[in-house]
Simulated assay, not measured.
Amino acid sequence: MKREETKAIRIGDRWIGGGNPIAIQSMTNTKTEDVKATVEQILKLEAAGCEIIRCAVPTMEAAEALREIKKQIHIPLVADIHFDYRLAIAAIEHGADKIRINPGNIGDSSRVRAVVDKAKEYKVPIRVGVNSGSLEKSLIEKYGGVTAEGIVESALDKVRMIEEMDYDQIVVSIKSSDVLMCVKAHELISEVCPYPLHIGITESGTLLSGNIKSSVGLGIMLYQGLGDTIRVSLTGDPLEEIKSAKLILKTLGLRKGGIEVVSCPTCGRTKIDLIGLANQVETMVADIPLDIKVAVMGCVVNGPGEAREADIGIAGGIGEGLLIKKGEVIKKVKEEELLSTLREELLNWKG
């Protein structure tokens, strides 16, 4: 189903599905047992725009730490469980707003039921997660390998198992590191699944490859109206995941707010450190609450014209640069003053 049609599910104080805004998620990479380090990372992620956070719960100590972590953060917390159903139960009892499990690796139906009963008692939704890497041998044999069809069948089997236990507070996550397989799987499951979809490209890679694969995969799915909550999975600082997710949503017109920075590619006419300047501008505007477009141009030849569609921009020359509004040059300043001049204009923005 399209995101407007999926079932609305409450996670802590946030709703996903049913046409609610697409929520940005990330996952901590600290040891959850280390409450101080985990809280510090979550607070940084919150400030960057993270709206739901997931923590690994590999031990009972980690499950118990959730209670103290919850006291110090402001966004819903998801407990990520593998294999031990007792950790899922403990995570719920210690304040998890949602749990992520693969019922297939939790154990027999009695153990799954114990988790579902506890989730039902605490009104905590269950995210059913199936990855291509954990596909059952029987489905691999049935489909002649790991396929989108097999991933979907596996996920629907787990969903039905929970539904048969009289629980429907479910979020579905089916992921693959193969972008086109992942897209196809979501297209297939959206035709038959009423629950919100958590979408992402798993194990997508480092900052460069991960961003490209995630942008392509998420872009296709989101443009088709699929996906109620997203995570850009990157091998690196989780803060980069939030930056990328916000930009993907904004590029697709699915989120507004925040300054958009556009910059030209460098060429032989460039007389300033455009690459450094563009990166400095992007960092500098992160804390300025405006919904405008800022252009960073490398030369005064094409700069004013190319920046015309931006609300404000700067263009570099030889040791100096121009401040431009709506394509009109309003000030010439020294190169070293370009950044501070732009920031001053933005802080006193009147449109």
Rank of each mutant, 00 (worst) to 15 (best):
R308C: 05
K120E: 01
T147R: 14
D34W: 01
L180N: 06
A286Q: 14
E141I: 06
T206Q: 05
E64S: 09
G219Q: 04
T270C: 15
D228S: 03
I242A: 11
L180P: 03
K332M: 11
G129Y: 01
T341Y: 09
L247C: 01
E320A: 10
R111S: 06
I16P: 04
Y85E: 10
A63R: 04
S233L: 09
E5H: 08
V116K: 03
E61R: 13
K334Y: 05
H94Q: 07
G95R: 01
A185H: 06
V130F: 03
I199E: 08
K70S: 13
L66W: 08
C264N: 08
I73K: 03
D108I: 04
G316I: 08
I275M: 10
I75N: 09
P304D: 13
L274F: 02
M221Q: 12
P58Q: 02
W349L: 12
A185D: 09
E335H: 01
N302F: 10
L43E: 14
V281Y: 09
I318C: 02
E68C: 03
I170H: 10
E345K: 14
K71S: 03
A88C: 05
L346D: 12
I275L: 14
I199F: 03
S134Y: 05
T341A: 14
K331L: 14
V285N: 08
F83Q: 09
V116I: 12
V39W: 05
S204A: 15
V172N: 05
K70L: 09
N348Y: 00
C299A: 09
I199Q: 02
A315D: 04
L323D: 01
S109C: 00
K293Y: 04
G17L: 12
K350C: 03
G129P: 01
I312V: 15
G268C: 07
R113Q: 15
C55Q: 06
A155H: 04
A307H: 02
K325I: 13
C50I: 00
I201S: 07
E241Y: 04
Q280G: 01
T38G: 07
I106A: 04
E328K: 15
I259A: 10
V115A: 03
T38Q: 09
V296R: 09
N20Y: 12
M27Y: 06
S26D: 01
V329K: 13
I199D: 07
L290F: 12
N105C: 10
A91G: 11
W15S: 13
D166S: 14
I9D: 05
G305Y: 07
E33K: 15
R86P: 06
K158L: 03
A91D: 11
S132T: 12
G133V: 10
E153F: 05
G236N: 08
K332E: 15
T235P: 00
I201N: 08
L218Q: 08
K334N: 13
S154P: 09
P196Q: 11
K31L: 12
A286H: 10
